[in-house]
Every structure is written in structure tokens, then in C-alpha cells.
Simulated scan of single mutants.
Amino acid sequence: MTTAAPDTDGRVTVWDIDLAPAAAHRDACLALLSDDERARTSRFLRDEDRLRYAASHAALRLVLGHRLRTDPRGLAFGTGRAGKPHLAGVWAGSCRFSLSHSGSRALVGLSASAEIGVDVEEMRPMPDLLRIARAHFAASEIADLDSLAPDRLTPAFFACWTRKEAVVKATGEGLSLPLDSFSVSVSPAKAVLLSMPGGAREWSLHTLPTAPGYAAALAVAAADAGFVRRALPPDWPDRIAAPSQQGR
């Protein structure tokens, strides 16, 4: 992985975000969102889901505002055919992005031109992991998971799951791309896109370092694409009032 550098040089950047500090700044996060985003926030039944949505989308706006050197409140978004979000208005086409959140973590991936997908999942005990894999994964992935000792199964399953979700997000095809139509490695140590409709050579797949207890992955629709990892500082919700200070 490359070392930290400015995000304006065209490389892929992934921001790792701790959402926990946003709990004390709920109103500030909501104030940063659009009317539509606030309406979506209110539709979640559980308070923790409302907070996670508001905080992650506020963080997305901060990160994009930093990348584009603009007020994050003025950003506008649209969605593609299968629901993939993109920048709209005067910023349309200026940057590709992907957002994922789970538990108290969020990831934002940014790319100047190549389509990108990120996924993060909180790893939790799931007694039916193999049943889920057999119902959704490719045959080679199922065989690899079947061969593992029980203590290695959970991290391998989540490594596989996040990689597949990251690829699906990067394609923008959503549910129209079946999860068993392509295959990835299941070893947590190394991410490899093994097969893909149209070929896997023009893709890059990475395991992302993040907080303990989480699995995360990055997919880029470009060959040999590296990435820069950055993290929002712990006081990032305090900076909503002064977005120009974010990232310093």
C-alpha cells in the first residue's frame, strides 16, 4: 500500500472513519445533510441506524468537500440505473466515490476516474455462515470455505463477503450481478479477483486495514490500481462547523 499523500493527485483514496464520536453531535451531522438525506434518516426504525446513516453521510460530505475544495453543504447527488450514487450538478463526473458503514465504522473510497466500491462489515458470530455461502457464493469460494477449520471460517467468510460486495458496488449493477457469477479469494491475508464476467485482469481488489473486529475491501475497475489510506481525526464531528479545516 502506498503512503499518505494529497488526494488530488488522481490516486484512489480510502478514508477510514470512526462513527462513535458523532453520537454527541447528532444535530450537527443532520444539519450538514440535504432535506432528502434527513428524510431518509428519519425512516429508520432503530435509533442506532438513524445515527449511523446521518453520521456516515455527514462524513461522506466532509471527505468529498475536502477532495473538491468546496463547501460540503453544497454537494448534490444522483443515482444510476441500479441505484449507485454519484455526484450531480456542477460536480457531476468530477470524482467517483463509494460509501459503506457497519457497526461504528464507515469507509469512503474516492477515485478520479475509475469506478470504485468499498465495503466494511462488523464480524459477528453467525452459525449459518456456510448455509449463506452455499446459497450465494461461487462454487470455488464454497469449496474453499468448506475446507477451513471452524476457528478460521468467520474471518474468511467476511473477507469473501466484503470483497464481493465491493466488486458489486464498483460495477454499479446491484442485484443484477449475481454473487455467484464471479469469484474472489477467501483468505483474509490476500484479496484476489479470480474470475469476473468479461475478465478479471482490468480490476484491482484489496483488503483494507481497519479497526479490529471488522473486515473491509476495496474494488477498483482498473488494473494495478493502488490506494492511499487516510483516517478522519477523532474530533471530526467538531469540524463540521468549519469544514475547511477537515483533513489537516
Results as ranks from 00 to 15, higher is better:
residue 169 K to H: 02
residue 143 A to Y: 04
residue 208 L to V: 14
residue 107 L to V: 12
residue 127 P to L: 05
residue 174 G to S: 08
residue 96 R to G: 02
residue 156 A to Y: 01
residue 111 S to K: 10
residue 231 A to V: 10
residue 240 I to C: 09
residue 232 L to K: 06
residue 25 H to G: 00
residue 137 F to A: 12
residue 68 L to M: 14
residue 236 W to H: 03
residue 92 A to C: 10
residue 168 V to E: 00
residue 160 C to S: 14
residue 204 S to P: 07
residue 132 I to D: 02
residue 161 W to Q: 02
residue 95 C to D: 06
residue 152 R to A: 13
residue 178 P to V: 06
residue 133 A to M: 05
residue 231 A to D: 14
residue 71 D to N: 15
residue 186 V to M: 04
residue 35 D to C: 07
residue 10 G to M: 09
residue 202 E to M: 10
residue 74 G to R: 14
residue 180 D to G: 03
residue 236 W to T: 00
residue 203 W to G: 06
residue 137 F to R: 02
residue 26 R to P: 00
residue 113 S to C: 10
residue 178 P to Y: 06
residue 131 R to F: 03
residue 108 V to G: 08
residue 240 I to A: 05
residue 197 P to K: 07
residue 113 S to E: 15
residue 82 A to T: 02
residue 240 I to G: 05
residue 245 Q to C: 10
residue 199 G to H: 06
residue 235 D to M: 04
residue 96 R to W: 00
residue 228 V to H: 11
residue 165 E to V: 02
residue 90 V to E: 15
residue 218 L to S: 04
residue 246 Q to M: 15
residue 148 L to Q: 10
residue 123 M to F: 03
residue 223 A to M: 00
residue 150 P to M: 10
residue 10 G to E: 12
residue 71 D to I: 09
residue 80 G to T: 03
residue 171 T to Q: 06
